[in-house]
């Protein structure tokens, strides 16, 4: 308990008759970067909102930084930094004005110094009088992050922080997250970029409101127990058609001039691929299963469970 920044059990949320989050249990250790993955509409945002006291759970309990998520919402808000999916600072306020506002709400002292330091760290001192709405996506994201950590929270909840941000800015963003984690900050970050998932200490995968995999990237890959084959040649399109519905084949995905074929039943998959490769004159060989393959597989099986 004391080692965990977040412990939630059986978290459930319904909107009307739709269960958006169903019985999610999750723990995040202190100082850890936890990746929270899942397709759109899988309940990531709702789960995060319940953790930071923005939504009242319909079922389940939990503690965040030792505070009860139902009863100690005020205390949680003071110690948590929450960065929303959409830029949610004031576009009609300047950068400095936005930071001043946040510093004021948290009662930070000395306010001017805090804001000046934050601007300095951001490298935005020269542009502090620019309207936040005029910033590019990457800068907006940096500003939002800076505003969220200004009050030195113990836990950072990031909801798809890098959506719509260019690769360089994303890279820098993640470097910053790791720096913060090294200083002891716990981070829960939702994303659907696989490369970002691989930069997390641990990941949790949620689909249709249910948590279906968690652990380190290696553990998730291992637990999925998938076999992947790669096919290349002139007639990969014909091979793809031939493989559809073949025994052992669960996923077929073209990657440039090659074809990735993934399945749970390794022996059957290899047999099918070998047969098709022979038929079309393509070459086939084993390949590493990627996290993306695993997630697509998991999504498919979660869908099956729903039906």
């Amino acid at each position: 308990m004391t080692d965990n920044a977040i412990t939630v059990t059986g978290l459930t949320k319904r909107f009307g008759d739709k269960t958006v989050v169903n019985d999610v249990s999750l723990s995040v250790r202190k100082g850890e970067i936890m990746g929270f993955l899942g397709p759109n509409g899988s309940g990531k945002t709702t789960t995060i909102r319940m953790m930071c006291g923005l939504l009242e759970p319909d079922g389940g309990d939990g503690t965040v930084l030792g505070y009860d998520i139902r009863r100690h919402r005020r205390a949680i808000k003071r110690r948590v930094g929450y960065m929303t999916q959409r830029f949610s600072f004031y576009e009609d306020l300047t950068i400095a004005e936005n930071l001043n506002f946040v510093a004021g709400l948290y009662g930070m002292k000395p306010k001017r110094q805090v804001v000046r330091d934050t601007l300095e760290d951001l490298g935005l001192t020269a542009r502090k009088d620019q309207l936040a709405g005029k910033l590019s996506g990457g800068w907006k994201q940096r500003l939002a992050l800076a505003a969220c950590i200004m009050h030195k929270p113990d836990l950072l909840l990031l909801d798809e922080p890098t959506a719509g941000v260019d690769p360089k800015a994303r890279r820098e963003f993640w470097d910053e997250i790791h720096n913060l984690a090294q200083d002891g900050l716990t981070v829960l970050v939702s994303t659907h970029y696989m490369d970002e998932a691989e930069r997390c200490h641990r990941i949790a995968y949620i689909s249709y409101g249910q948590l279906i995999a968690k652990g380190t990237v290696a553990e998730v890959l291992r637990d999925a127990n998938l076999t992947t084959m790669i096919i290349s040649g002139d007639k990969v399109a014909a091979a793809a058609r031939a493989l559809k519905g073949a025994p052992g084949v669960d996923q077929i995905a073209p990657f440039g001039a090659t074809l990735h074929v993934v399945g749970r039943d390794g022996a059957a998959l290899k047999a099918s691929v070998a047969a098709v490769a022979e038929q079309t004159g393509c070459t086939a060989g084993p390949a590493e299963t990627s996290l993306e393959d695993v997630f697509i597989q998991l999504m498919g099986s979660a869908e099956d469970n729903m039906q």
Binding site: L54, R74, Y82, T84, R86, S88, V102, L105, Y106
Partner: peptide, 13 residues
């Protein structure tokens, strides 16, 4: 409408 409410509510006000 602008989504700033979510942020405002997540801060101690």
């Amino acid at each position: 409408e602008r989504g700033t409410m979510e942020n405002l509510l997540s801060m101690p006000a």
